[in-house]
Every structure is written in C-alpha cells, then in structure tokens.
Design a protein around this nucleic acid. Sequence first.
DNA 1: CCTGGTGCCTGGGTGC
DNA 2: TGCACCCAGGCACCAG
Length: 273
Amino acid sequence: MPELPEVESVRRQLEPALVGRTIAAAWADGHPRARQFGVDRAVGGLVTAVRRRGKYLLIDLTFDAGVRRELVLHLGMTGALRIDPPAGSDAHDRASLTLDDGRVVRFRDPRRFGRITVVDPGEYARRIPTLARLGPEPLSDDFDAARFAAQLAASRSPVKACLLSQRIVAGVGNIYADEALWRAGIDPRSRRVGRSRAERLHRVLRDVLREAIEREGTTFRDYQMVNGASGRQAAFLDVYGRAGTPCARCATPLVRTVVAQRGTTYCPHCQRW
DNA sequence: CCTGGTGCCTGGGTGC
DNA sequence: TGCACCCAGGCACCAG
C-alpha cells in the first residue's frame, strides 16, 4: 500500500533515471476499467522533473514548441514501478514507458487500483479530483499545526477518516494513520480532538513519515522500489498489522476494529477519545 | 456543502 | 484436495 514514504522512495530512484530522457514509446494495457488516459500523449516528451504530491508521482514533460504536460501516476494499493526488470515483462504489467536510452519503465499493478494519466500542467480537476483538492504536504512548511487543529475541530468525522481523506493533509494512508494516532495517544474513532492533541498529532505524524522515508517505506507484499528492493520500515511499526500483540507503551494487547471502512489497529488503553 | 456507504480489482487466506 | 467465500484498501462515485 504505497503511501507518502513509499512513493517518495520510488521517486528518489526514478528521478535520476528519467530526468533528461525523452519518452520514445508508451504503452498501456487498455483494460476497460483501468484509469489510463492519454498515455500516448507522453511520447516525445522530455522529462524535466520527477515530483511527488501526496501519493501521486508527477513527471513533468516538455515537447517541441514549448508544450508542457504532466504524466500523473498513482500506485494504488499494489502498484510498483521497475526499470528494466530482469526476465522481461510480467503478467501484471499494466503500462510501460520506453526511454530514448533504451531502458523501459514498467508499471506493475496486480489489483489495478493504480492510475496513469497525462494531463496539461496542473489540470487535475477533471481526471484526478483528489489531486486537485489535495491538502498540504505534511513535511513542508505549508503543513501548519494551528490550521490542522482548526480543520480537525471543524470536522465531524473520526480523526482517522480525516487523516485518510487527503484533504487536510496529503499522503497519509492506513499504515501511517494508525502509527501516528498510536504515537499521539489518540483513539482513531475520536471526533473530538482538541488543539493540544491536534498539535501533538501534527508533530508525530511528521516524525512517523520522516522515519519511514529514512527506511524507504514499508513492504508487506507488493510494494517494492524501482530497483526491486523492499522498504525496511515494516519491522519498526508499532501497531499496523500487530493486533493481539502487546502495546509497546503499556503492554495492553492491541485491538483490531474498523474505522472509516478500514482495518484499524489501536491500543484500547493508551489511545484516548 | 458534508458525511457515510459501496464498488472497483485480484491474490491469498480460511473454512468446510 | 477442491472450492466457495471473504478480505486487503486508495479512490471514485453516489445518496441522503
């Protein structure tokens, strides 16, 4: 489940391979329900940057006559990018980009939750509404603690749903929502998060994401980096996937429930409403 | 506007 | 062993 740390790790490996290269050919499998739009419009584009917003990868392309476009990639739940994977293509390859140096970037996505789309720069509203309304980058100065607290206070949703919405803060998924709420000592179902607790959540969310980036993300099954390596964060998670094991703070067995239609693990003793 | 619920998709796990 | 079923979850979409 690639979230911000996983997508950032992929971005860092992708950037040196792509910047300065031209897209020589592009392919998408054309599955009727796949969210693949205008992939062929990447052909001929010079890659000038590989950026990330939340869980989205944004590849800036410049064409002849100064035309610019963006290739927007979302890895969904099981998506992974590989460059020149050994043994060639895979039954789960959904799209690929051939570069002018002969290398091939392959988008593998068994469950087809990912997306690949070419749009005019910044024109997200039609095809990618979540990106159009994405909240601030959590590791940037745009992520302001007071504003975060005010937005949590204004919402009537469970705090975990707020974190997953992408609107209040970008890039948080199920793993790091659970981790941050555990570290902040906040019950994921709470609809009443006051200012001081919101500021603590703001701080620990940034810590959790930074630590995960340092370890190049969490690999459970499908997530891997461009070079095929796994992230190293899984062994350091405090709650995600650890229901029934003792809480690292108070030794109470962690409990699994459902919040915002997502499996949720928390400590019933030290995470408070 | 906001909120909550459903569907998409497929590999892996479970229970009979 | 075989098979039906269910679950994982990021996001789009819809109803109220």
